[in-house]
Amino acid sequence: MRECEIKIPLASTAFSLEMLYSLARLGAYLHDAREEIDLVLDTGDFAMRNAGLLLRYRRVKFNTDSRILVTLKVSPDATSQDRWFQEHAEIEFIGGDTEHARQTSEIIRREVSSRTGLTLPVLNPPGTLAEWWGRLAKSCGDLAVRSLVEKRRVILKGELSGSSWEACLDLFPPPVGPYLEFETTSPHSLELLLERIGVPENVLDARTYGQIVGERTEAATGKSSRVLVFETTADEIGWLTSQYGASTTPNVDV
């Protein structure tokens, strides 16, 4: 599936309410509210990043349920840095005992192998964060953390001129705070959505959340880190990073 997305910081309450008002006028409806932890690992020499790939493990928690999503994002041109938005193809499955999960996990393994030469472990079922990390380390050797980020997300959806769109209200721990991410299936749909909502061009941010977290933490603490979680998760994540000793990538384009 093709995805085109852009982010904007919600710098004030007034601006946040203005964006919500514009989304409501477009017919936005509440799709979901949840907590997410995203873990993006790579080899020590960033074989996947260099091939335009991003392999993400996402743990999603609802009020009474949880699930794991595994996603491979494939950039159309790994060397292009001049887009005003992010664009990629996405291959994704929900972990579990389903034929779709089994087939899609093998598609991801073949795609990574063909582009990097890496042999990934069996991806389904994904297991816990620790199990996922351990399996990748066993297959790929030393790992680098491209990002390990937690957020609280509210998903709004709607349609515009026959195309579906998604707007995600994302709250990160300090020092990042709230962001709004827009997602469509084409550049034209994204441009039209932003125009109808009235988003100022000077607030658009085409970076990944990993890059944004790295820049914000460096500005606040003097030390760049792409690991950012809420206090309720800090002990679990601290144990993981100490257990596996994975290095954190510098805050470069990934």
Rank of each mutant, 00 (worst) to 15 (best):
R196T: 12
H188F: 11
L194R: 02
S80C: 12
E191C: 10
S164Y: 13
R83G: 10
V112E: 01
R83W: 12
S186L: 05
K138V: 11
L169H: 12
F172L: 09
G96S: 10
T185W: 03
P126T: 15
T119N: 13
I197F: 07
R152L: 04
G95I: 04
S164I: 06
D170I: 00
C168Y: 07
W165L: 05
A101K: 05
S80N: 14
F182N: 00
C168H: 08
L69A: 11
Q86F: 05
A167G: 01
L143K: 01
D142F: 07
L129I: 12
E166V: 10
G96N: 12
L136G: 02
E150R: 01
V74P: 00
P174N: 11
P187M: 08
E166D: 10
T185Q: 14
T185V: 11
L193C: 02
D170Y: 03
F172W: 01
R110T: 07
F93N: 00
I107M: 10
E201Y: 10
T184V: 07
E183T: 12
Q86C: 07
R135G: 07
Q103M: 10
P174T: 12
V154T: 15
D142V: 13
K73C: 05
E159Q: 14
T98M: 01
L204M: 06
N202K: 13
Q103P: 00
R83K: 15
E131F: 10
P125V: 04
D170G: 02
T185C: 15
G127E: 05
F172M: 08
C168T: 14
G162I: 00
K138G: 13
T185P: 04
H100R: 14
E92K: 09
S163I: 09
Q103K: 15
G95N: 04
C168W: 07
S114Y: 07
E195D: 14
D65V: 09
A78W: 10
D205H: 01
A89D: 15
P126E: 09
A89E: 15
R67P: 05
S113Q: 13
R83A: 10
S186H: 04
E131A: 14
K73F: 08
L143S: 02
L160K: 03
D97Y: 09
G198R: 04
F93G: 00
T128D: 08
L190C: 05
E106F: 09
E159Y: 09
L190G: 02
S75C: 08
G117H: 01
S66A: 15
G198Y: 06
A130P: 01
V154M: 10
S80M: 12
D205I: 04
P126C: 14
